[in-house]
Write a protein that binds this DNA or RNA. Sequence first.
RNA 1: GCGGGUGUAGCUCAGUUGGUUAGAGUAUCGGCCUGUCACGCCGAGGGUCGCGGGUUCGAGUCCCGUCACUCGCGCCA
Length: 639
Amino acid sequence: MHAYRTHTCAALNQSAVGQSVRLSGWVHNKRDHGGVLFVDLRDHYGITQIVADSDSPALPVLEKLKLESVVTIDGDVKARAPEAVNPNLPTGGIEVFAREVTIQSRAEELPLIVNSAEDYPEETRLKYRFVDLRRERVHNNIILRSKVISSLRQRMIAQGFNEFQTPILGASSPEGARDYLVPSRLHPGRFYALPQAPQMFKQLLMVAGFDRYFQIAPCFRDEDLRADRSPEFYQLDFEMSFVTQEDVFQAIEPVLAGVFEEFSGGKTVTPAGTFPRIPYREAMLKYGSDKPDLRNPIEIADVTEFFGNSGFGIFDSIVSRGGVIRAIPAPNTSEMSRKFFDEMNDWAKREGFAGLGYANARGNQGPIEEFAFNFWNGDADQSISGLVIDGVPAQQRIADEGANKDSVLGFLKGPIARHLAPAEQAKLLKKLGCKPGDSIFFAAGKEKDAAKLAGAARTRTAEILGLIEENCFKFCWIVDFPMYEYDEDAKKVDFSHNPFSMPQGEMEALETQDPLDILAWQYDIVCNGYELSSGAIRNHRPDIMYKAFEVAGYTKADVDENFSGMIEAFKLGAPPHGGSAPGIDRIVMLLADEPNIREVIAFPLNQRAQDLMMGAPSQVSPRQLRDVHIRTVEAPKEG
RNA sequence: GCGGGUGUAGCUCAGUUGGUUAGAGUAUCGGCCUGUCACGCCGAGGGUCGCGGGUUCGAGUCCCGUCACUCGCGCCA
């Protein structure tokens, strides 16, 4: 008989009744009835109930044993009485009567309880990650991760991609994120950098003629963390030769849609081949973000045209200084309390914005859209007959109150609305697609700021109102990123994203167009508001590369000095190529429905990039520092 | 670097307007219990209330500072 087990804790069922078996696992839970003791024995595969009665020598041993101790049980499989069957347990039809128990490892009192779904502070969980990982939810997440990676690999290989490893110890690169540095022992004063991504190497693999490469690649970035950002993470890094942007899309959409369909657990997935393509500028306008969550039905609109001479001072002056006004429709909220709108405004201020204005559309009972359209076209009197405002027909109000026609016909309430003539209000509602009873939030400022506030308000509004569609994964491509942007601080044009992307229009565009109008063959994949990947058709032409850098104010010497390896390679025969790199941790995070990337990493660093279990980063001995020619400046702290 | 939240028993949390000896659940220890599967019942131990300072007759509670964790902003092509 095997030293530890004849079966796993998930393997036994009715067909094993009568067998003599040996099981090993952790004491998941105990129920001690004095004369009879039940133990839930757990391993990776499942749970089997062990029974020890007063005849069993195992009873006194198991009785004293703490939870999470590891034991080997010798016993006999018995069928449970019908009333004792546990339908919630796959092995619930049987139990193992213990004849003997061997203690493999005694557990002391636990810092967190394995057999509970209770939430523990992350500090505790990470310090005792090996215990935390025994718990069902995290254990399943890590298994899911393994399956997702396996599936991604198979799907890539099936498409003819070859998996290669690229160096971990590389050269530091001047652009991009901060590098993790590794000092060199053999070369005093010099440093390796851990890769932020295998960018250079995958392009060189294309130059080397390998045509289709991929890698489950570890990446490192020494920047501050977020819930969806870890300093070390994995990407499905891939690159292809002789391809257009369209070819890259067609290669990766089936992989992502496929793996999401495989593991989504029934949630709907945007089908491969139908990922919407949203130009960057459109995304910034309609969603206030370059990673829009398309589960959110709200669409932002630009309403700058309604202000400037409206008499609403703040907005008018923002517009006159070149700013913009963005409107965020909030469905069915016009009857919400003042508090709702005030709290949105307070929230915007807390987020560092000037504030968030609002207006409410009256709860008209008439066909407001049709009326608004007619009104706007000077055809109002004709349709007033059908219009009811706040329960009173519009014509009657005009007659009864002798009211000013404009005030009666106003569609919008609130401090901003007072400054817009009814015809303007109608146009505005029409533009936003608002219905009676909706409200509108206004975000004003410089274009970048207003878009950002509008985007944040769009998300918050939908979350508060419960408008985010559930049980779906909505993918899209963000395309047509601008090649350059104006850097306010440096007062010059600079690359807006990756300097190695091919500009759309290539050399001709660089020579003839306003740099701020040039688009790049660069694209992101976004799913449910998370940026899953970033990619591009690369610039493989030295002449275009020098020109692209020249536009941003860099000399040929600058390029040669910083990127000589790549440039030299491109001078010796480089195929047109492009690729992308979906983030694996974020994919698993979405599939596991976890709000935090650390939930899908077996041993994650905490929010301050520390390993609380192993104590990284740690101090090293003076000898080690001497070896790598490092002298620290600040007095080391204890710990 | 900046802003929000949290910090009370091993663990999860409660703690009122500043007022007696800081509570509960769970875990641990002891006792009882032969059919539980969140077993049940009885009892016990367990606290620098994150840390430092201040106000007060009196501070877990109010004020100032500070630390840790976390979420967001900056940052992350």
